[in-house]
Amino acid sequence: MLRKLAARSPWLYRINTGSCNGCDVELLTTACIPRYDVERLGCRYCGSPRHADIVLITGPLTVRLKDKVLRVWEEIPEPKVTVAVGICPVSGGVFRGGYSIAGPVDKYLPIDINVPGCPPRPQAIIEGVIKARDAWLARMGG
């Protein structure tokens, strides 16, 4: 029964892998501003990777942060759904080919949903979260 109830409310966790902060601001906007309010969908941000169900990754994955990001990502319990927010984690974006860029993120982590944009607007992020929730439910088997 707990599983049935919990399935409605995936918790979100943000990982910034060297983002310019644009996408992080949009993620913040999506949750904290009543106009967009992702918490209507039962989602909320959590502070610990161990509580998370959906991971939102921003940034092009810099060389310095690569190992730390992988370590944090490993700590998130299965089943988890990984969402790449912005063009940087998806393809490297405008930073692609830079000396300090190890990404794109899908070289190291299995990404499930991509939300490109520079940054994507809050509604696009909500759309991505909904797709991620569907993928997460499918992975939970219900």
Partner: peptide, 8 residues
Amino acid sequence: DWHNAHPQ
């Protein structure tokens, strides 16, 4: 058109 979210 901003409907950009898509599966991997």
